[in-house]
Simulated assay, not measured.
Amino acid sequence: MVRWRVERGVSQQSQSLLKGFNEVIEPRLTAVFDARELELVIAGTAEIDVNDWRKNTEYRSGYHDGHPVIQWFWAAIEHRFDNEQRLRLLQFVTGTSSIPYEGFAALRGSNGPRKFCIEKLGKPTSLPRAHTCFNRLDLPPYTSFENLYEKLLLAVEESSTFGIE
């Protein structure tokens, strides 16, 4: 039933959308992009307000804004990630690189309003995991800034090879 609703139930609409898209942009021009890159090209790259993002983030399982791992996380985002990498992180965690017009306070999940969330979960040797329906990042309790930065960057840059829920 789910497969029918997602694939076959909207196939006529999807085909019409694709046909219209291909009338505007030749398929050979978009063939070089994967789905993530194509979304960034189409949606554009808005400048992310890191302060707004941080202000509208929830923490779980022992993390809080003053926790060392969270301090390292925001330091990596603010000082080491460029805007494109921030957008890819947002896409990794939420499934989209678009920021709501109203800012991060208006972020939505699969079932309505849902803030960006960071939960302490995993081993310090694990990569971060994303739950896109819930805008949640499972961030292991890393033991150093460099370890967090390397693991986060690897997860974000290579997310097409890792399982995203």
Rank of each mutant, 00 (worst) to 15 (best):
L127I: 12
L87K: 10
G66R: 12
S61Y: 12
H79A: 05
N111H: 14
P100L: 13
W53V: 05
S97L: 03
I48E: 02
K55D: 14
E84A: 10
P68A: 10
N56G: 09
H131M: 06
P124W: 07
H64C: 14
F92E: 02
H64W: 11
W74Q: 02
D82S: 08
S126L: 03
V69A: 08
V41L: 15
D49V: 11
R129M: 11
R88M: 12
T132I: 12
R88K: 15
L87S: 08
F81I: 10
S97E: 01
V50R: 06
H131P: 01
R86Y: 10
V69E: 00
P124Q: 11
I48G: 01
H131Q: 11
T94S: 12
I48Y: 03
G122K: 05
V41G: 03
I42S: 01
Q91D: 13
D52W: 06
P128D: 07
K55N: 10
P113K: 14
F73C: 10
R86T: 10
T57A: 12
D65Q: 15
V50I: 15
V93Y: 02
H64M: 07
C117G: 04
T45I: 08
F73W: 06
R114A: 13
I70F: 03
K123L: 14
P128R: 08
Q91S: 10
A75P: 00
I42K: 05
A106V: 07
R108N: 08
R129G: 01
R129I: 06
L87D: 01
P113E: 08
A105W: 04
E84N: 06
W74K: 04
S98R: 14
H67R: 01
P124Y: 13
S110E: 13
N83Y: 04
T132Q: 03
G44C: 09
H67P: 07
A106M: 06
F81G: 01
H64V: 11
V50Q: 04
L87N: 09
L89K: 02
N83A: 05
V93M: 09
L121H: 14
A130R: 03
E84K: 08
G95A: 11
E78I: 02
G112P: 06
S126G: 04
T132E: 06
L87V: 09
G62R: 05
E58F: 06
L121V: 13
F73R: 00
L127Y: 11
D49H: 02
A43K: 03
D82F: 10
S126R: 02
V69S: 01
T45G: 15
T94I: 13
H79N: 15
R88D: 00
